[in-house]
Design a binder for these strands. Structure first.
Length: 219
DNA sequence: GGCCAGGACACCA
DNA sequence: TGGTGTCATGGC
């Protein structure tokens, strides 16, 4: 498949502006999974506090989280917000891994990833963005992660509607880019970094590194 | 004091 | 099937 040169041009500009992002910021694949759940609609700084609490308590393992009473887990992850909801979601995830994959992330990631994605989506609390983050950043499978930054940026650039759904937006990228794990890893990380840097409420401004990247120029 | 942050789900018409 | 409410902390 020939890559869409507009998307590659945007990637190159972001890479030139922000450099390699070295994502996901975690010490292990399981920490990626935990972070992916904890960061749902939440500032990453708060997630880091919650993960630090789990590490300090010696609970940042599949068995550790599975065996904690839910209210005790909620106290540990409190800084990440929605702590009651997320405690339940973390336990849904680890029990899914225990029951379906013998508690092994290696097994989880060893099968056909599209099938694994469907199974992850069936876990309560694992939506499409969380599933794709887990598969890409913990499992190193080539699925594109879409988030609020992605939708905001690419709707402002004129590629998709502001209310474009998750799956259409994901397909937009996957149909136009080679299925390259490293490219998907870096692309999403760069979109997030750009989203954090630019003004959230204004349209793309003139000094934005992507000011030249719009469909009417690239045709 | 209000807004926002790397979503997902239950509920209802 | 689509819209709306709920979950909650911490930084700015």
């Amino acid at each position: 498949m020939a890559a869409d040169r507009r998307l590659i041009a945007i990637f190159n500009r972001l890479a030139a502006q922000y450099g390699s992002r070295h994502w996901w910021p975690a010490d292990s694949p399981f920490e990626v999974c935990v972070g992916a759940i904890l960061t749902q609609n939440t500032n990453w700084g708060n997630v880091e506090r919650a993960i630090a609490n789990l590490k300090q308590a010696g609970c940042l393992t599949i068995a550790g989280i599975a065996s904690l009473p839910q209210d005790r887990l909620a106290v540990l992850i409190r800084p990440a917000g929605y702590f009651n909801v997320k405690a339940a979601r973390l336990q849904h995830f680890v029990r899914f891994v225990q029951e379906q994959y013998q508690g092994s992330l290696d097994l989880l990631f060893s099968g056909p990833w599209q099938q694994t994605r469907d199974r992850l989506l069936a876990v309560n609390g694992i939506g499409p963005e969380t599933a794709d983050s887990i598969l890409l950043y913990a499992g190193h499978h080539p699925t594109f992660v879409v988030d609020a930054y992605t939708r905001r940026l690419f709707s402002r650039l004129g590629f998709v509607a502001p209310d474009c759904g998750y799956e259409p937006l994901r397909r937009f990228f996957m149909d136009r880019l080679p299925g390259d794990t490293r490219l998907f890893n870096e692309y999403h990380a760069l979109i997030v970094e750009h989203g954090k840097q630019v003004c959230r409420t204004r349209p793309l401004c003139a000094d934005c590194c992507l000011a030249a990247c719009c469909p009417r120029i690239f045709g």
